[in-house]
Design a protein around this nucleic acid. Structure first.
Lengths: 211, 211
DNA sequence: CTATATTGTGAATAGATATTCACAATGGAG
DNA sequence: CTCCATTGTGAATATCTATTCACAATATAG
């Protein structure tokens, strides 16, 4: 059966999506152009009408991931003004994201993506840097508003934020869902928030005097 | 030139070491039995005198990593009695470890290792679980001694511990050493410690009284 | 010393996979 | 309607890699 003729712009999206889905299921090892083509309903050679090769398909996958991350950032920005709450919600969204798209940590943490491809390695670094940047901005905003301790470096907080997500997602994935990622994330968030939050200046036993 | 005849026990170690080294350099994608054999100074087919196949070589690599991790645990246990200090030193050792053996995060976070190999996936999960277990024990010990807040779940602390290492190591690796992993880890540790440490029951904010 | 198990070698095999290419269908511009 | 650029197809190719196997060297037990 012959596949319908679809303009290359749409095909590119379909192919990138299919690749992301396959990575989620099979891992990068199982990602062949044949599999991707089959998923889209095409024949392997047809992929080359839309991409120069497998490398470019992987690049498109990276762009897709970058978009998903940035979408989350935009969403929490729209949802609330409170920086701490923004970070909290971004955490929840991120956890949900890696559960739906298991491929994301796989791609992000797999060397297969950038081994022997310096330009792709740089690209990946840029994507993560961009994400961290947004988190840092939230932290700075929180510090300006006096909600986050001024002495913690925004970069540190941002990297620690990743640290709350990555291992949890990884353990969850590795245990085939046995690891309770939701519970763990909730608890980690409490500890994390306590560490970065400027304590309210009320007069309880933890009295903290503004100097 | 013919390679010397070496008993299989030693060859197995050499092969596992060589594989770990190659993964550090090339990633899992570049890990071929030919490359491993060449590294050891053997011919590809010779590998099969010591391992049933590539799969078993990868298993041996996992065992190697597990050993390295447990060695670190044993070392910090011997170094100090203070649970908090143990955790701190384990952090430093772990950071150093992933810098020397870049392969470790690569292997741990790459799906290539366990994709389509449920038994190896389980094995990997077991290794990490075992490591987390040791950290949890340190936390519990710290709670018993009143040095760590009793309300934080040891499992949460252990997973967060991984979270301090993994993203840092990853960014460092991805940036070709540009990311300052040492500085970041130091700062993260301060925040982390503040979050889990039971505040001394003295009455100045910096004064620390030996009880 | 020599018999034998162990280890190393080179060639051959088999399977997978990315990529190319000549050819065919399709659909919109004119 | 007709042309032609675009998109899809099937077969062929080239490369890479794991694995097998018959044979060779080597060391150790007896």
């Amino acid at each position: 059966m012959r596949a319908a003729k679809v303009e290359t712009g749409i095909r590119r999206e379909q192919i990138a999506q299919a690749a992301l889905g396959l990575i989620a299921g099979q891992g990068l090892k199982g990602l062949s152009v044949a599999a991707v083509a089959n998923q889209v309903g095409l024949v392997p050679s047809a992929i080359y009408r839309h991409f120069q090769g497998k490398d470019q398909v992987l690049n498109a996958v990276l762009d897709l991931i970058s978009m998903r991350l940035q979408e989350n950032v935009a969403a929490v920005r729209a949802e609330t003004q409170d920086p701490l709450e923004r970070i909290h919600r971004l955490l929840l969204r991120h956890i949900q994201l890696v559960q739906v798209y298991q491929a994301i940590p796989r791609v992000l943490f797999s060397d297969e993506v950038y081994s022997g491809h310096p330009e792709r390695k740089a690209k990946l670094y840029g994507i993560i840097r961009g994400y961290l940047q947004k988190i840092e901005e939230m932290v700075k905003e929180g510090q300006r508003q006096g909600r986050i301790r001024p002495e913690v470096a925004p970069e540190t907080v941002a990297v620690m934020f990743l640290g709350m997500v990555a291992p949890s997602a990884f353990l969850w994935h590795l245990s085939d869902g046995g690891f309770n990622i939701t519970r763990n994330t909730e608890r980690a968030w409490k500890v994390f928030r306590a560490a970065i939050q400027e304590p309210p200046t009320t007069m309880k036993k933890k009295k903290r005097v503004k100097k």
